[in-house]
Amino acid sequence: MVGRYLLVFFLGAIAIVMASPLILTVFSSLKPTTELANPPWYPPFDVTFEHYFRVWTEGKFNRYFLNTVIISTVDAIVMIGIASLAAYALVFMKYPGKALIQALFLVGLMIPVTAIILPLYSIVRSVGLVNTHLGVIFSDLALAVSVFVFMFSSYFASVPKALHEAAKIDGATEFQIYWRVVMPIAKPAVVTTALLEFLWSWNDLLLRLLLLPSDKMRTLSVGLLNFQGIMTRDVTGLSSGTVIIALPVVLLFLVFQRHFVRGMTQGAVK
């Protein structure tokens, strides 16, 4: 019995250590400047939201936020479409070269974005998409599509082949079968894809740093990096900026924790 209490105590201590960087950041974002001399673990006594307003308008985080929402949302929706269509063709259709295409997607699981960032930039530039959201979106989709093609494939593989055959005999086209029969069964994969692609897109820095040089197009990650470079000592502003970039995904995580946990283990290679 003593052992059990010790266990909970130890785990509780770890949970506090893990949570404290976030809690301290939230504290510091809500403190008036007069309370900054207090130790960081002092909660704010006179809570103020002025730093959020300041960062949001003067720091142009409103713009960055909008850009990030646009890119991440488009990424998530388009990813569901292209990955599930490709997976459908890999699981239910017969045609020459199928094994080759499967192998091609497999390669995508092994390519680290970091290693190919230089030529990727050249290609995006040569098709005229530097400084556009579209350039980032295409790159995001290309670099993660393999993960989701395989995720959908494994769901589709569990659909009884007889169901597919029966729909075909009833005269349904392949697209009708995809849309009305197969996709409804793969709902969990749709949710996981949406959440995971949204999260990856929301959080990425490197691609956006290179592909979106102009301030107008920046996402939150680049905006925060830039803000940090200029306002090095603005602790409250930096904390507010951090909370602004973290809060949406934290809320998503708390609501969809089970989906996230499953998705992150499946998509771990990325």
Binding site: M18, L22, N203, L205, L224, L225, A246, V249, V250
Partner: peptide, 9 residues
Amino acid sequence: LPVVISPMA
């Protein structure tokens, strides 16, 4: 929870 937070944050 920290897993979902942006590396930039």
